[in-house]
Design a binder for these strands. Structure first.
Length: 462
RNA sequence: GGCCCCAUCGUCUAGCGGUUAGGAUCCAUGGUUUUCAUCCAUGUUACAGGAGUUCAAGUCUCCUUGGGGUCACCA
């Protein structure tokens, strides 16, 4: 069975890159009807935050990627890691290193001065003397000193990393707390991972983790390293260009299905297909089709996708989502009409909410440019006539087409162009020159409110 | 700097030795629409550069250039 996982460290919110690797992992598991596990990497007690953890979980909930089983917290598994450390120590596969931090820094500076790769020199690897007092040792694992560490990456292909790129790295800190590369290998193995899908930035952790797998005699999973997402200029993603909290996308009015669709196409493709429902993603996703190259983050397509998903979303569901954007139209008797009239005009839920509010609120002022253009000439008279006709036909007006008929009548009786009534009417109803169709707006407002707005506009024309 | 990875329109990408190099987005133009938006149509724009291999190279090899990653008692 395919088992994948997402393993964030709770040191900050979940951002777009993390969400994408999580999505890839989740899709892989869903596709194979396997399991997608969630693990919180909180071995560094000093840098963890409860808030960050909550935020990450919340983001997952929002996009609807559910994990299987309980969330695994590494901080609760220290006993387990300790056992493995002791085992390696006993087997002579790991050793205590009494080098002080100062000595380490010194060594590093020396190496840097000589333009060498900075690495631990193994001075305590075969140490048998009396250890220096007052130094709490760290535990280092014995990495191979020659040869090559080889693994096949599902995305990059065969990787060969020279053993001297991997030093005897620390697996337990001076305070006994285990370190990242050690616990990741153990947990991935114990949790039964078959596919490890993670960011490219972990590529060089892989040989280190393989050292741990080998020392402990654990089976290797398949590794898949996904290239990074950069900003539009191809530079590292910063908060300014999108490395913000995933939840910020919700605030900006993006739909989770749009965000996921956007992300799945960043570094993955299925021919020319652009639109993927969650079901299609699951059906079609294969990590083998993940791109080797990094991709640049650009909002244009996300916006387009978002507009697409808004347009195609059932009104009932849309109304439910809109509540969080300050628009409560659930139970509104013209809900269908209202959303049909506005959903093609909002690329985000925020914009859609604005469009709806534009219709629902009586304009308190008229856009200067629009009113100057629309309220000139005989606009006042035309509006008054139109209002009178609405009153006259009041009881028969229900649908947009009913209102349209009245407009038709007015236009033909007065022998004027459609614009003569359209423009002033639009500004009267919305306060501006742009927006939804007049027929729809009037049908939503009803005769009373429509007339109120027209009369208000007539007053304003004086 | 060492090591590693990557390179097709501005952006996301298709391509897997023979294509008029395709799609999407963006942008522009036209059409539909009483406005805006939607929708539809059309158009501009790409194989980073240089050597090879081959009858034939965006596709294979090498070099250059550019970008990215990584070198912790962080994850």
């Amino acid at each position: 069975m395919t088992v994948t996982r997402f393993a964030p460290s709770p040191t900050g919110y979940l951002h777009i890159g993390g969400l994408r690797t999580a999505l890839f992992s989740w899709l892989t598991a869903q596709h194979d009807k396997g399991e997608f596990l969630l693990r919180i990497e909180d071995t560094d007690m000093a840098r963890n935050s409860e808030e960050a953890k909550e935020a990450i979980l919340k983001a997952f909930e929002w996009v609807g990627m559910s994990h299987d089983g309980e969330v695994v917290y590494q901080s609760k598994r220290f006993d387990l890691y300790k056992k493995f450390i002791d085992q390696l120590l006993a087997e002579g596969k790991a050793y205590k290193c009494y080098m002080s931090k100062e000595e380490l820094t010194e060594l590093r500076e020396e190496q840097m001065a000589k333009k060498e790769r900075t690495r631990y020199d193994g001075r305590y690897r075969d140490f048998t003397g009396t250890p220096p007092a007052e130094i709490n040792p760290v535990i280092r694992i014995k990495a191979p000193q020659e040869g090559t560490i080889t693994f096949v990456d599902g995305v990059k292909g065969e990787m060969n990393i020279s053993a001297d790129e991997v030093d005897d790295f620390v697996i337990a800190r001076a305070d006994g707390a285990p370190t990242y590369n050690f616990v990741v290998a153990i947990d991935d193995a114990l949790m039964g991972l078959t596919e490890v899908i993670r960011g490219d930035d972990h590529l060089y952790n892989t040989p280190k983790q393989i050292v741990v797998y080998n020392a402990l005699g654990l089976d290797l999973p398949n590794f898949n390293h996904v290239a990074m997402i950069n900003n539009e200029q191809g530079k590292k993603l910063s908060k300014r260009d999108g490395a913000t909290d995933v939840m910020a996308y919700k605030e900006m009015g993006y739909l989770p299905e749009a965000l996921l669709n956007f992300l799945v196409r960043l570094g993955w493709s299925h021919g020319d297909q652009e639109i993927f429902s969650i079901e299609e993603m699951i059906e079609l996703f294969d990590p083998k089709n993940i791109n080797k190259s990094s991709s640049n983050y650009n909002l244009d397509k996300l916006l387009w996708l978002n507009a697409h998903y808004i347009k195609n979303m059932p009104n009932e569901k849309l109304a439910g989502m809109l509540k969080e954007y300050g628009v409560n139209i659930e139970g509104h008797d013209k809900l269908e009409l209202l959303l049909d009239a506005t959903k093609e005009r909002g690329k985000t839920l925020v914009e859609l909410a604005e469009q709806i509010n534009l219709i629902l609120t009586t304009p308190s002022e008229y856009d200067a440019k629009a009113s100057k253009k629309a309220f000139k000439g005989e606009a006042k008279e035309v509006l008054a006539d139109f209002a009178a006709m609405l009153r006259e036909w009041d009881k028969t007006l229900h649908l947009p087409c009913d209102y349209h008929e009245v407009m038709d009548k007015l236009v033909s009786e007065k022998e004027i162009g459609f614009g003569k009534i359209g423009m002033p009417l639009r500004v009267s109803l919305l306060g501006s020159m742009t927006g939804s169709g007049l027929d729809e707006i009037m049908a939503i407002l009803g005769v009373d409110e429509t007339v109120v707005r027209i009369e208000k506009a007539i007053e304003a024309i004086e």
